[in-house]
């Protein structure tokens, strides 16, 4: 989790990724940020995220992103 938070901070240092649970529904992240996150996950965790997984519930919080990583890795 620590590592993921670090990478997320590099993309948007003004967002409280630790506590925020409405990153998408609360319109905190833009589609540009999401693409940055997708590219970061690809580089750092070596996972290709299919378009069908790009839905709000998978990106609303750091926890949800971590779950997505675990699911796609597993």
């Amino acid at each position: 989790m620590e590592e993921l938070l670090q990478h997320l901070k590099e993309i948007r240092d003004d967002v409280d990724f630790e506590n925020e649970t409405e990153l998408i529904d609360g319109k905190i992240l833009t589609s540009f940020d999401i693409i940055q996150i997708i590219a970061m996950l690809d580089d750092e965790y070596d996972i290709a995220i299919p378009a069908v997984e790009i839905v709000p519930k998978n990106f609303n919080s750091a926890g949800a992103i971590l779950e997505l990583i675990d699911r796609l890795k597993g």
């Binding site: 540009f32 693409i35 940055q36 996150i37 997708i38 590219a39 690809d42 580089d43």
Partner: peptide, 8 residues
């Protein structure tokens, strides 16, 4: 370049 930028 940022990786995400190249992606789009």
């Amino acid at each position: 370049a940022k990786k995400g930028t190249l992606r789009l």
